[in-house]
């Protein structure tokens, strides 16, 4: 089990680097009331890698997502996508947010929601339609194209936002607690869906979560975010094979070991946060 107390977690040698984060720092406000949320965050994501970033709540996971997706400019450090510095939302990056009800447009039908990011990109209408059809097919919502998001369950709505991200044809997919607002059964269903889609399409996925089981189940690699200000405190390579299954994978001995390891380091990260807040 490779656990490095990593500053600058590295991409496995066989993969090319897609996303590169270097000494990222974010500070809100200035002067005595300022708060440093992230400091010295460094890691890389390889092509076709599935990486989960795990951390206690309040660790700065959402701030990190906003920096990765170009919605917030970091105070220091850089984010690079394919070697290009990220200064705004990049072209080949798609974001799936936690709150699907505020990310899908309730006034657009499902197909139009999936089409929205394709607009104004010079994509011919025929190809747009084809991409929409294929994306909805892949998430199993081919029959829902003409419905409004409000007519779908939470899990289905989140599948629509996954379809929208897929149709956008990204090389990296950033997911911010994507399954946190759905029930447990739907959650495992969506986990399997995103795992299957990632294996098929070979795009890189960065999934932010506070759920340790979820992170071990899905990841090739886990980065633990913690401390105050937060940085990457641990890195775990998860070697559970390509095929994963809710029953068999989760009852493996190695799964339990990974789980315990990650849990321990999250507790450690939480403890660091508490100690520092006392001073």
């Amino acid at each position: 089990m490779s656990s490095t107390s990593a500053q600058g977690a590295q991409v496995p040698a066989a993969l090319t680097t897609v996303l590169e984060v270097e000494e990222l720092g974010v500070q809100f406000g200035s002067g005595p009331t300022s708060m440093t949320v992230l400091s010295g965050v460094s890691f890389s994501i390889g092509s076709s890698e599935f990486v989960c970033i795990v951390g206690p709540s309040g660790a700065g996971k959402t701030t990190l997502v906003r920096c990765l997706s170009g919605l917030t400019r970091p105070t220091s450090g850089t984010v690079r996508l394919d070697g290009e510095p990220v200064l705004g939302p990049p072209e080949r990056l798609a974001l799936v947010a936690q709150d699907y009800s505020r990310s899908l447009m309730p006034w657009l039908r499902v197909a139009d929601n999936v089409r929205l990011p394709l607009r104004g990109k010079g994509i011919p209408v025929v190809e747009q339609r084809e991409r929409i059809r294929r994306a909805l097919d892949e998430v199993g919502l081919q029959d829902a194209a003409h419905l409004y998001p409000g007519q779908l369950s939470g899990g289905m709505q989140q599948r629509v936002s996954i379809a929208r991200a897929l149709a956008y044809n990204p090389e990296i997919l950033i997911m911010d607690e994507p399954f946190a607002s759905v029930d447990a059964l739907t959650r495992s269903e969506l986990e399997d869906l995103i795992h299957r889609l990632q294996r098929q399409s070979k795009i890189a996925v960065v999934l932010i979560t506070h759920d340790i089981d979820e992170s071990v189940y899905l990841s090739d690699r886990i980065l633990v975010l913690g401390g105050r200000p937060a940085s990457i405190m641990h890195e775990y390579s998860i070697d559970l094979g390509e095929e994963r299954d809710q029953l068999t994978t989760k009852s493996l001995r190695t799964f339990a070991e990974y789980r315990a390891d990650v849990l321990r380091s999250i507790h450690a990260a939480g403890a660091v946060m508490r100690d520092e807040s006392l001073t």
């Binding site: 919605l71 447009m105 929205l116 990011p117 956008y168």
Partner: peptide, 21 residues
């Protein structure tokens, strides 16, 4: 909700289309 607009921004929708859609 600013998250609607943020979604549009993350998909590089551009100003006129963000206003319209």
């Amino acid at each position: 909700d600013h998250r609607f607009i943020e979604t549009a921004r993350s998909f590089r929708l551009g100003m006129p289309r963000t206003v319209w859609f």
